[in-house]
Every structure is written in C-alpha cells, then in structure tokens.
Design a protein around this nucleic acid. Sequence first.
DNA 1: TAGAATAGTAAACATATGTTCACCTGTCAA
DNA 2: TTGACAGGTGAACATATGTTTACTATTCTA
Lengths: 190, 190
Amino acid sequence: MNIEKTVTKIRAYFRQNKRLPTYQEIADLCGFASKNAAFKLTQKLIDAGYLSKDEKGRLIPLRLFAPLPNMGIVKAGFPTPAEEELDSVMSLDEYLVDHPEATFMLKVSGDSMIEAGIQPGDTVLIEKGKKPKDGDIVVACVDSEWTMKYYHLEQGQIVLVPANGRYEKIVPKESLELAGVVVSVVRKYN
Amino acid sequence: MNIEKTVTKIRAYFRQNKRLPTYQEIADLCGFASKNAAFKLTQKLIDAGYLSKDEKGRLIPLRLFAPLPNMGIVKAGFPTPAEEELDSVMSLDEYLVDHPEATFMLKVSGDSMIEAGIQPGDTVLIEKGKKPKDGDIVVACVDSEWTMKYYHLEQGQIVLVPANGRYEKIVPKESLELAGVVVSVVRKYN
DNA sequence: TAGAATAGTAAACATATGTTCACCTGTCAA
DNA sequence: TTGACAGGTGAACATATGTTTACTATTCTA
C-alpha cells in the first residue's frame, strides 16, 4: 500500500466522519489484517508531514487534511497548471473568518454595493462588534432600515456611502445601529 | 454547568484540537471530578441536537460544531440582528467546494473580470476537469497565455469574453487549454 | 415541610486503543 | 547465493475509553 493512496483514503475518512480513523480502522481501510501494518504505515505519514500525534498518541490532522486540499497553486500571475499540490494548503473557514464566534452570514439582496464587487446573491460574512475603519463596508440600521454601505467619516460625521451611482449617500439623522463590519465576501457559481 | 457554556468550551476544544474531547477531557474542561458528570451532560447536548454518536459511542460533531458557527442569520432581506444562532450552520469549505480533490485556489491579478464582480486580489476557486457551460467563467491558456474569461459559444466556436469593456474578446486561433472552471470567488477584507 | 428532580462524586467493568515484540514472507542489490 | 530490508501477520499488554450502577448534596416544587 503506497503512501499517496493511504493519504487519499484517510482524507476521505476524515471528511466523512469528521475525525481521523483509529489504527484498526486504517487497517480495515487499507485491507490489512493487522493493526501493526497500519501503525507502521502511519509512522511514514507522520515522517512525511501529513499527520502528527498529540501527547497521548492520538493522531491529529496536518496540512493535507485541511478541509480544502490541493490548493497550492497560488501565484501573482497565472498558474502553470502542470504543477500540482504545492505546499500551502488552507481551510477557507480559517482563512476568511478570524473570529468565528462573532461572525455570521448574510445573503445579499439589492445592488447598492455592486461597484464594490458585491452582487445580489453573494454571501457576506459579518463580524459583530468590530469597530469600523473609514472605508470599511458595514451593515447598519439607519433610521430603522437595514442597509449595507461604505462607512465614511466626513468632518467627524458618519456617512454611509453606497457603491452604486444610482443611490444616494446616507447621513444618519436620528439613530445609527451597527450590525457589524463585512470581513469577507463569497460567491458560489452553480 | 449550563449547556451553552459547555457547548462553547467543547466547540473551542474542537477548533483547537480538530477533534471532540473525550468524557474525561470534558470533565476537565468543565471542572468536574467525575467522568460521569460529563457523560450525563453530553447526553443533554445530544438531546439538544448539538452532538451525535457513532455506533461505537464516539462523539461526532453536529451543526454547532461546523467550522463556522453562528451563521444562522441568512435572510432574503436584511437581518434582525437581535436573534442569534438560528439553526442553519455550515462550513464554507463544504459550501463552496463540491469536489475538493479537483479544486485549487488562484489569486486574481488584473481586472479583466471586474464587471463580473471579480476584483484584483480576490481568490477564485477553480475546479479542474469540469466541463464548462456557456456563460461560465473559465481559466484557459489560449495561444500560450493564461487568462480568466467568460466561456461562450458563438456558432459552435469557442469565444473567451472578458467582463471589462476595455478588453477585447478572444477567439482562440491555435490552441485552447482549459485549466478549469471558476466555481466560486472569495474576497477577504483586512 | 416533604418529596422529587437535578447535578455531581466515586467506583467498577468490558472493550478499544496505541504500542511493542517476535515472526514471516518476497524483493532487490551486492 | 546471500543478506539486508521493506511490508505484512499475529499476539500480547498497559492504558484510556464509553458506560453502568450506587450514592450524596442541593435545589425546586407541591
């Protein structure tokens, strides 16, 4: 049983069960009759940097078991698609969300931020409680209506500016309640 | 020890160690002297739908232990941010990537797709080997140069159309090698 | 105030787990 | 041909795990 095939199988198991298999289960996965075969094979995976162990011997997933693998090819220009699997691998969850406990999703309706590259149907990730900087995109309730706009300061006055020429900027008269700051945008094509 | 606090602690443990804690560890986490206290408490979490068990008694994470929690508030319009933690919870990895083994990331440079809401600095997720439909965004090597464009068919002829009025559409003369189809776009603000 | 539910302790047990040791191939290079 | 070696089997062992049962203290409720 070669290493790459084993990694593929263990990775599939990890995706499906959301935990790494035991040695017994690795043996089953690879068709071994003995746990020890799995044990030795696993040692190689550790040496190769795919896995690690905690102090009690339990396996912990490393780079190749991040939720999204094969994402190595990231270049400034464009890829040479021949080269597969460079080393940088990451999870989109970890990449896009710094404070998961304070972040929620929102599906965008309306085109008020279209010139900022946020289209209707996109999903924005909003971090609650974050203090907006000038130029951030925020979701705010101004005069009891929710909108997503640029957050700007003009002479100390908060101004909410849309990224769409057909809309007017908003200067909150009475109240301004901030739902949070947009920290990332994701869009899925189907 | 109330349920929400326990969930928070177990969730934190899960994030950090990439596996669920054992009953002993849950007891430690909550300051219990007995595993059984953790056992009973866990039973409540299962009843409440936070967790589940496999056939051998091992805990398996459910909705609230998805990589990105608190993402319930998804509405067509805008949120009532008072309500926290609705039930729909999901992982961005699972949401954005259908075939992780065939998907890789690419950081976008250039503004040829800006009118499609894809900006320089955005990251696109590309699925290799996927057959493009008319109107899909593809990454292709045409006449030995890599570009990202709309994929269109005009009278059976493949045409690559940019989403930027300042660029011309491309009709591949000699070769057209497809790196893959853009299945999603993510953007992170910092 | 009495009684029941709640929340935690303590001990016990069968089983599964990580790990080690001894052994058995077949392959490949010297 | 020989010897090292990779790759696998099988058994053994200490420990950790999930689970059950019995018991205690506290809180809530009728």
